[in-house]
Amino acid sequence: MSVTGETTTTRLTARGAMTRERIVTAAADLMYVRGVGATTLDDVLEASGVSKSQLYRHFANKDEIVRAVIQLMGQRVIEREQNALGRVSTIAGLRRWRDALVKNNALRHGAYGCALGSFASEVADHDVVARQMLLSLFAEWKDLLAGAIRRLQEHGALPREAPIDELATGLLGALQGGYVLAQTARDVTPMATSIDMALRHIESLSTS
Results as ranks from 00 to 15, higher is better:
4 T>C: 08
6 E>R: 14
6 E>I: 11
8 T>A: 11
13 T>N: 03
24 V>E: 03
32 Y>W: 08
32 Y>A: 07
33 V>E: 13
37 G>F: 05
41 L>Q: 07
42 D>A: 10
42 D>Y: 08
56 Y>E: 08
59 F>Q: 04
59 F>W: 06
62 K>V: 03
63 D>M: 07
67 R>I: 04
75 Q>K: 13
76 R>T: 12
83 N>Y: 14
86 G>K: 02
91 I>L: 13
94 L>R: 00
98 R>L: 01
98 R>N: 04
99 D>L: 05
101 L>H: 09
102 V>Y: 00
102 V>D: 00
105 N>H: 15
105 N>Y: 12
105 N>I: 07
109 H>Y: 10
110 G>V: 03
112 Y>R: 00
114 C>G: 03
119 F>I: 01
119 F>G: 01
120 A>W: 13
120 A>S: 13
125 D>F: 14
130 A>K: 09
130 A>N: 09
132 Q>F: 12
139 A>V: 06
139 A>G: 09
140 E>A: 15
141 W>Q: 14
141 W>S: 13
144 L>S: 07
147 G>Y: 00
148 A>S: 06
148 A>H: 04
150 R>M: 08
153 Q>G: 02
160 R>D: 15
163 P>A: 05
165 D>K: 08
172 L>A: 14
174 A>C: 11
175 L>F: 14
175 L>E: 09
178 G>I: 03
187 D>Q: 03
188 V>W: 00
190 P>W: 01
193 T>E: 12
194 S>V: 01
198 A>M: 04
199 L>N: 03
199 L>D: 04
201 H>S: 12
204 S>D: 07
205 L>M: 06
